[in-house]
Amino acid sequence: MRHDPASAAVIVMLRGLKMYGMAGAASDLIEQGAPAFANAVPILSQLLKAEMAEREVRSIAYQMKAARFPAYKDLAGFDFAASEVNEAMVRQLHRCDFIDGAHNVVAVGGPGTGKTHIATA
């Protein structure tokens, strides 16, 4: 049986979703050269991509709820012109490079300067 990248991707997605039984069965079908499986690969691939995206959305929603952020914020909604905040520094911090170096970020300022908005974003 020749190597089919689409079928291999389906196996990877099944394992990524912790569907090991289905991944094993799909591997067997690939080895057998089952034409029905080969025809189903594009549909199965789309379904698995949708499931992975849905799980990612639910995971982010759960993590946001668990973090107890006051509300969803992003940098697109922050008005840098109305604040004295250094936009370049905030954009650099948004890349989270400081995490790799195990550094802390401390936001200091008076009320209404955007500390919570930036930290949440």
Rank of each mutant, 00 (worst) to 15 (best):
V90L: 07
E84L: 13
A119D: 08
C96S: 09
S45G: 01
D97N: 12
I60T: 03
A34L: 08
H117E: 00
A82N: 14
N104D: 04
R68N: 15
G24S: 10
G109V: 11
I11W: 00
A53R: 11
A23N: 09
F69E: 02
L47Q: 06
A66L: 13
D28K: 14
A81Q: 11
T116Q: 10
A82P: 14
A26H: 06
G114E: 09
E54H: 07
V41M: 05
I11N: 03
N86H: 05
F98W: 15
Q32T: 02
A61G: 06
M1A: 10
K115S: 09
M64Q: 13
A119Y: 10
A8F: 00
V41T: 00
H103T: 15
H117C: 02
I43L: 07
A36R: 07
L47I: 01
G24K: 05
A53I: 06
G77S: 15
A82I: 09
V90Q: 10
I30R: 01
L75H: 10
S83G: 09
A34M: 09
A8C: 04
N86I: 12
R58M: 02
L48H: 02
R15M: 11
Q63L: 14
V106W: 07
I11P: 00
L75S: 12
V41N: 04
V12Y: 07
R95S: 08
M89P: 08
A23H: 01
R55G: 00
S83M: 11
D97L: 03
S7I: 11
Q63Y: 05
A88W: 06
L17K: 01
L17I: 08
C96F: 15
R58P: 02
N104K: 01
G101Y: 14
V90R: 07
E56N: 05
A119C: 13
D74C: 10
L17G: 01
H103Q: 11
A26Q: 06
V108P: 04
L17R: 01
Y62P: 00
P5M: 08
A38E: 12
M52F: 00
M89F: 12
V12S: 12
V41H: 01
T113R: 14
S45K: 02
Q92E: 14
S83L: 12
S83N: 06
D79N: 15
G101D: 13
A25D: 06
A36E: 11
A6V: 11
L14K: 09
A121D: 10
V12N: 04
G101C: 15
G33H: 11
L29N: 06
M19N: 09
A82K: 08
I43M: 09
E31A: 11
H3R: 07
T120E: 12
P5F: 05
K18H: 02
D28V: 07
I43P: 00
D97R: 14
P70G: 13
Q32F: 10
A102G: 15
